[in-house]
């Protein structure tokens, strides 16, 4: 196969995986069971690792393989495992009613995706691989923020934050040649890891103190 044909295939695979990440995001928005949400997030991160691997293969850049490996170890295995353990430990499996019901949430998710495409439009010429990956990345960030506002459980808000982070990493792959420099990738990786641990500690303490992790009960401090 000619190099341009490999590039075309790589590009298509990348676009497909990015699109699947967005689909999974919409699933997370519609889904209320915490454990399912954690698994959906793990699959989404797996796709991100796959995208990094495709980029690494295409550019034969070894340090991006490392990024793919870190994503795999951290976001696909370690974090979901940690969060799952937390779910069992605090004995809450079901999200209470979100502020908006599933159909209207989906509608808003769709609207935000559209917004992502509009914002990304002037920059599509910069993408090295894949089509519209930047638009999908921005859509992931925006829907992640919506997810955070729409849910009240502390744990779901953590998951929402992680999907936002996936979106940012996708933007990094979409816009730049090889993702971010290695030292930055390492920094981000450890920060995310520590962030989830800190958040888990807080979730646990909130659960102990309030006998709930409903963040709408955190409403004492005003003015």
């Amino acid at each position: 196969m000619s190099p341009s044909a490999t590039a075309a295939i790589g590009s298509q695979i990348l676009t497909l995986m990015a699109a699947l990440m967005l689909v999974l995001q919409l699933f997370i928005i519609a889904q209320r069971r915490l454990l399912t949400n954690i698994r959906l997030f793990a699959i989404q991160s797996l796709l991100l690792a796959g995208i990094a691997a495709v980029v690494a293969f295409h550019h034969s850049a070894s340090h991006v393989y490392l990024v793919a490996g870190l994503t795999l170890a951290g976001k696909v295995v370690l974090l979901p495992w940690l969060l799952t353990r937390l779910v069992y430990r605090i004995q809450i499996h079901q999200e209470i009613e979100p502020l908006l019901n599933a159909p209207s949430s989906m509608l808003i998710g769709g609207g935000l995706t559209l917004l992502g495409y509009v914002v990304a439009r002037p920059f599509t010429s910069m993408e090295r691989l894949g089509n519209n990956t930047l638009a999908i990345a921005l859509a992931l960030v925006l829907t992640g923020f919506f997810l955070m506002i729409n849910r009240r459980k502390a744990l779901t808000q953590v998951l929402a934050l992680l999907t936002v982070e996936n979106g940012v990493m996708l933007a990094a792959v979409a816009l730049t040649t090889y993702g971010m420099p290695l030292v930055v990738e390492l920094g981000i990786f450890f920060d995310v890891l520590v962030a989830v641990m800190v958040l888990a500690i807080l979730v646990y303490r909130i659960r102990e103190n309030f006998a709930s992790m409903d963040t709408s009960k955190l409403n004492q401090l005003k003015g």
């Binding site: 502390a154 962030a195 800190v198 958040l199 807080l202 303490r205 909130i206 103190n209 309030f210 963040t215 955190l218 409403n219 004492q220 401090l221």
Partner: peptide, 8 residues
């Protein structure tokens, strides 16, 4: 805890 949660 509320303050820390909002902060983080």
């Amino acid at each position: 805890l509320e303050a820390a949660w909002k902060y983080v």
